[in-house]
Structures are given as C-alpha cells and as structure tokens.
Design a protein around this nucleic acid. Structure first.
Length: 763
DNA sequence: CAGCTATGCGCC
DNA sequence: AAAGGGCGCATAGCTG
C-alpha cells in the first residue's frame, strides 16, 4: 500500500494537517479504500471526459520529449507574438503542490498539452517520454526574450507555478479573469462559465444541458497527475485555447478606440484594466511569493497564555450559569426535546438564545432580532451572564481563528503564504484568504506580534491617513474640505468647527497643551460619524444611536454639515442621478460598479398562473406570459405610493385575490442605494492603493535595497527590508504611496512604523 | 460523510 | 418604518 502513502487528492499542506488530525488507524483505513477504488474511479473519469470533451480529441496535440511539437509551437508563438498559457497542478498551492502539465495555444497551431509530471495511477511511477523541465524552460525563455504577449486566466497562479517549478518568471499581458471582472463584476468569473456564455454564445439553458466541465466536476477527488495523459490532454490543452478565445471576445471591449468599447461606455474601464489591474498582477505575485514570517515560539507562548484565559473565562461562565441551575433544569424537564448541551455551549447561538430569552426570559433589546445573541445585543442586556459569554467568545475567537490556527499555515520556509484575490470585492478592493491576512486583530496587540520580520530585516508598515475621506474630498471637490487637507488640518475637526460654529481648536481631541478636551472630542466624533454615515448610506437613527444622542440632534448636525459643505450632498445626488440613468457609477480612476437594481421599477406586476385573460384550463399558460394591463398597474402603483407602509401588505393581498402578484423591489433598491456613494469612495481608495503597490514594485531602488512587500490591508502596506536599509526604504516607500494620490490633486499623508514585530515597538 | 446556511465576529 | 459599505472564517446544526 506504499503507493497510496498519503491522501493523494489533497495538497501536501492539507495532507500534513490530516496526519496531525487523524489517527494512524483511521488514516490507513481510508487509504485502503482509496487504493481499492482508484481503478474504477479512473475508468469512470476516462468515460466522463470522453463523453464531454471527446469531440475535441483530434484538435489538440501532445508535446512529448521525442517529438518536436513543443518547439514548433514555441516558434509559432514567437512568430505570432502572442499565445495563451495554462498549467495543470496537483493542487492550488503554487509552492507546495507540483506542476503536472502545461498547455499553450497560439493561432494557426493546434493547442498543445505538455505532460510534465503524470504518474501511473497504478504504480505511482512517472510516465515515460514526458517533456523535460530544462527543455520547457528554454522554450519559455524564448517567449520572454521575444516579448511574446501572454494571455492567462487568473495569471498570478500560473505565473507562480511556472516560476517555482520551471524557473521562469513570465509576465502576463492579458488576464481574462481580470478582464471579465472589469467588464462585469456581477457575474461568475470562472473560465468554464465565461467561455460557453460569451464565446460559444450558449444560453443558460444550453449551458445547463452541456453539463459541468470544470476541473472538480470531471476529476472529482483525483489529482491531475494520476489522470492518464490520453484522457487529460484534451482537458488540459482545451484550457489554453478557450482562454485565447475568451480573450478575443473581450479585447475589443477593452480597446479604448474600438466601437464596441465606446458603445458600452467602457473607455474609463480600459484605464483601470491596462494601467491598474494588469500591472498589479506582478505585485500580487510578489506578495504571495514573499509570504510573512511567524514567530512560532511566541505563538506557542501566546497559545498557553490565552488557553489559561479561556479556562478562567469558562470557569466564570459556568459559575454564573450555576445561579440559574434551577431554571435550566426546569426548562429541560418541560422541553424533553431540548438540544441544550451541558454546560450550555457559548458558541451555539441557538442554545444561547434559548438560555437568554426562554429560560431567563430576558426582554429582547433589539426588536428586529428578538433572538439575537451578538455582541451589541448582549452588551445591552448588561448582566453578569452576558459579560461572561462575551469574554468566552472573544477568547475562543482569538484562539481558534488566529493564535492556534495561524502556526498551522506555515510552509517549509516558516512563512505564511496566503492568497490575495485581486478583484476580491465588487468595489475593486482586494481580499485575502488561506488564511485571511486582512483581518488579523489590531485592537489586541498580542496577536499581530506573531508576525515578525525575517532575520536581519525590519518590518515597515505604511498606511494612508484618512484615505476614504480624502478620496471623498477629492471627488466632491468641496473647497472648504480641500482647504482643510491642503492646510494639513484634521478634516473631522474642521467639519465639526463649521457645523457647531466653534473654533477649530475646540473640535480637537486635545487642547494645545496636550490635555484632553472631552467636548472637542465629542464634536469631532459626531462630525466623523455623520460624515462616514454619508459614505456608508447609514440611516440617521443608527448614527444617533452610535453617538448616544437623539435622532433630532444627529439630524441637526447632519443638516448643518450638508448646508456648510454643499458638495457632499451634491456628490451623493450626482451619484444617484448617474446610477439611475446609466445603471452604474464610476471611481475616480474609472472603475465601474454596476448596480442594476437601481433601475428596477419600485413595483412589478405579474399575473398569477392561470389568471389574466388566459383560459384558466389552458396547458400553455407558461408559454405566453401576459402583461398586466396598464390601467391596473397604474391603479395599484398609485395606491402603494400613497398609503401607509402598514397598509402595503393589505394592498398586496388584495391584488393577489384578483390574481395579480405584486413584486416589491423597494428592499433591493434600498440596498443598492446604500452602495452607490460607498462604491465610488471605497472603489477609488482601492484604485489608489493598487497604484501605490505598482509604484512600489516598479521602484528599482527599493528592489536594490532588498525591500519586499508582504501584506496589503486596504489602506496600508506591510513590507520588510534589511535593517541597514530601513531609512532609505522608509522614504521611498512613503513617496511611492503618496505618488498614488497625485492625480487627485489633493496631497495625502501617510503614517509609517518601523518595527521587528507587526504592531511591535517602533525602532 | 460532505456541503450548505445561519450566526457571530475579526479587519478596513 | 428602518436601513452600514466591503470582505473571510469558525462553529453549530441541518440536509442529502
């Protein structure tokens, strides 16, 4: 059974975890099953691939060590100056997983599959006559030397695989995934979905019929290295050609003077794609490849410390719970089918709700969420039990998500190499996973200190100061707000000063002598909340609640802010006008956020099946959907627009009796409305941060100094460099960041910290 | 058993 | 009437 020594279907990384998690007995049991099933599984896969992709068999070629297919195609790539490339691997980790094969397509040649590390699924021995890494490297070097334009789908992955496994760092010229995201952020961006949809022109129905063609669907559970080349080459080779075809479809829309681009109003998106997203691919490759060091010894100590705290938290919780022993027992007797564990689990919202609302009969503080057990609700309840629950949950979160989790994520180099999703948010922001490096606790100073500079290096963090408010100021152009930033004043204090009609100094957190000024802090906090409230589309009630004040007072401050800074309100109104007219808003740099819900009618009217002027007995009602006559639509629209909101459901029920279904889009429209201003601001900030990353990665001097980017956290970058170069790196780092704001015409401030541990003591 | 949703919570 | 934007992940608990 040595063949199946590891659970092969998983990445090495996960395999390691499996070794830790499972007993030896269990493990070998599952492996025996795998071994017994592999023959059947492979033949099932062979048949499945044959049925789905067999038609393409003769259209693609295999590059073997003893034929000249690879050389021929490389030559054609050089001649054409363009090609699409894709890799197949044993898993999704470009460092710890292995490359299995590659495919290349260039026009006028068959798409080729290059087997590299296929093994026999029976013996585990490498299949003979596969291409040698050295030969492939020489070929790829030719592509680099001749500036061949390379097209990929999710390029950062393939670039890293090829860099790590073949030793060539390719540059991607056109990433079809990023293109798709720039062209429409509101759809899935998998190659296997986009190609049928846009290149083959299949309808949703036809696509369903075609069935699933993605890797997981076809090879479920079996890594690609075990797939016989005769079967796998069709899938592999096809990846590069469909990537190329998708590119051909997309290119006109991303060519600034092409009629298709102009007609779709995509000129500004071209700027984002070509000048921000494509150059940023190299930044992501660096970030992921660099990784960040973790102090394992410190993490271990931290784990001990917090497990002790958790033990104490649990003791406290259980002793408080003891006070309610009687009530709990009573409840359990009355409700024989109760699902309460003993003691009641602090991590089960259901059990906690039972405890708090059913057993202790607490009056729900939040009417909208009467059985909620979230932090804000428990804080309002304000009793020792809730305090104990919150303490347990806080500590458990720290331990399970960070302190005990992160040390397991290390690769062989002792670093965490997480994954960054370049278009992770529909606003254009990045996201991070495996693990998420963008939500490491910052309030708690202990946890971030697990992350340290590599030996001989220092960490440098550099963040934009008030990035989003600054972007808002640049975009709305309010002269008073601009002045505040240009003169280096605190914007929130400036707003407060004007809104409250008191001096600027009286709106700062501190007096000039350094002592705290509580009134000033309150004013500044109010202005800040309201300003950010506008950014987030937040309701006035919710703002008032946060400020611990009345709705009237909050409303008054908001009104005076709108009055004194008319550009803020104007900007919101312009944004709403734009989205209603065009269906989208744009960022400062031209990224689009489509919000089609904003163009929905407030109400839609449909006949109930069998109603309308169709014969109720007809079998064909679903074929012709008849529209509800205009006069009825108008009548109900008028009623709905002029009624008390409480009467709305009555009207809807009334209509239903008459066979008319009223769809209320109010909720969707409200949701989208809140996104309008925020998308422009958050998206512009994201653009700016990406430009900063590009500036940094293109700075040759920083490279010479050994500076490395490690983690982006929205408005902040974390990097490291050799200790002796820190001063020069800090200056260049700051400059690259500030330069990103150049186009806005507003200066931006950055804050820098140099330290050995993240959030550790400044050096 | 895997895979899904709900709830809660960490960050900007 | 009331309304926080953007993420990823852990756990519980349900379903197939």
């Amino acid at each position: 059974m040595a063949l199946f020594d590891l659970p092969e279907s998983r990445s090495n990384r996960e395999a390691d975890k499996a070794v830790v998690n499972k007993t030896t007995n269990k493990r070998s049991a599952s492996i025996v099953m795998k071994g017994d099933g592999i023959l059947a599984k492979i033949s099932a896969i062979n048949a499945l691939v044959e049925s789905k992709l067999g038609q393409y068999k003769n259209e693609y070629d295999i590059a073997w060590a003893d034929n000249n297919v690879f050389d021929t195609v490389i030559k054609s790539c050089v001649k054409n100056g363009i090609c699409a490339i894709d890799t197949e691997t044993t898993g999704l980790n470009p460092i710890s997983d292995e490359i299995v094969g590659m495919s290349i397509y260039t026009p006028d040649e068959k798409a080729i599959y290059i087997p590299i590390h296929h093994v026999s699924y029976i013996t585990g021995v490498e299949v003979e006559n596969q291409m040698q890494i050295d030969e492939i490297r020489k070929g790829l070097q030719l592509l680099v030397d001749n500036d061949v334009k390379i097209i990929m789908h999710n390029a950062k992955f393939d670039i890293r695989v090829i860099w790590n496994k073949i030793g060539i760092r390719l540059k991607c010229w056109f990433d079809t995934q990023l293109a798709a995201q720039c062209l429409n952020e509101n759809e899935p961006h998998k190659l296997k979905i986009l190609h049928p949809k846009y290149v083959q022109g299949l309808t949703e129905e036809q696509r369903k019929q075609q069935g699933k063609l993605s890797f997981d669907d076809l090879f479920e559970g079996v890594t690609f290295d075990k797939i016989p080349i005769k079967t796998g080459f069709v899938y592999g080779a096809r990846d590069s050609i469909i990537t190329f075809e998708l590119y051909e479809f997309q290119l006109p829309y991303l060519t600034v003077d092409n009629p298709k681009c102009i007609e779709q109003e995509l000129q500004s998106v071209c700027n984002v794609f070509w000048n921000i997203e494509m150059p940023f691919v190299d930044v992501i490759v660096d970030l992921e490849q660099n990784g960040i060091s973790l102090d394992v010894e410190y993490a271990h100590k931290l784990s001990e410390k917090y497990h002790k705290i958790l033990d104490q938290n649990m003791k406290d919780y259980e002793s408080v719970l003891d006070n309610y022993k009687k009530e709990i027992e009573e409840y359990k007797k009355k409700n024989v089918n109760h699902k309460l564990s003993d003691p009641i689990s602090v991590s089960s919202p259901k059990q906690l709700a039972t405890l708090i609302y059913d057993i202790l009969k607490v009056e729900p503080p939040d009417k909208d969420n009467p059985r909620g057990t979230g932090i804000e609700i428990l804080e309002k309840i304000d009793n020792p039990l809730c305090k104990a629950i919150l303490a347990c949950r806080k500590t458990e979160k720290l331990l399970s998500t960070y302190i005990d989790k992160l040390p397991n994520e290390l690769l062989k180099d002792g670093k965490i190499h997480c994954s960054f999703n370049q278009y992770g948010a529909k606003t254009g922001r990045l996201s991070s996973d495996n693990p998420n490096m963008q939500n490491i606790p910052s309030h708690n100073k202990d946890v971030r200190k697990m992350f340290v500079a590599s030996p001989g290096n220092v960490l440098i963090s550099c963040d934009f100061s008030q990035q989003e408010p600054r972007v808002m100021t640049a975009m709305c152009g309010d002269p008073e707000m601009r002045k505040a930033y240009i003169e280096g004043r605190d914007l929130y204090a400036s707003i407060a000063s004007i809104a409250y009609n008191v001096s600027y100094d009286d709106c700062l957190e501190k007096f000039p002598d350094g002592t705290t000024n509580p009134e000033g802090k309150d004013r500044r906090d109010s202005a800040k909340s309201i300003f950010l409230g506008v950014l987030y589309g937040r309701g006035i009630n919710s703002i008032a609640e946060q400020l611990h004040t009345t709705k009237q007072k909050a409303q008054k401050i908001q009104s005076s802010i709108f009055k004194e800074f008319p550009a803020i309100k104007q900007f919101s109104e312009d944004s709403l006008d734009m989205v209603v007219e065009k269906g989208y808003v744009t960022t400062f740099w031209g990224r689009k956020r489509r919000l089609p819900d904003m163009q929905l009618p407030e109400y839609e009217f449909k006949w109930k099946p069998g109603y309308g002027d169709i014969d109720p007995l007809s079998f064909y009602t679903e074929v012709t959907e008849l529209e509800v006559p205009d006069d009825i639509v108008e009548e109900y629209t008028y009623k709905l627009n002029n009624c008390n909101w409480k009467d709305k459901s009555n009207i809807k029920q009334q209509a239903e009796k008459e066979g008319i279904i009223i769809i209320d889009n109010g909720g969707k429209i409200a949701d989208a409305t809140r996104q309008v201003v925020n998308s422009r601001i958050q998206g512009s900030a994201a653009d700016m941060s990406k430009i900063a990353g590009i500036n940094i990665s293109k700075n040759e001097r920083l490279k010479e100094l050994g500076f490395k980017l490690l983690v982006p956290i929205h408005d902040e970058y974390l990097g490291e460099c050799p200790y002796e170069n820190k001063d020069e790196c800090v200056e260049l780092f700051k400059q690259c960041m500030c330069d990103a704001a150049k186009e806005t015409g507003l200066p931006i401030k950055v804050d820098v910290v140099v330290s050995y541990e993240w959030y550790g003591e400044a050096i």
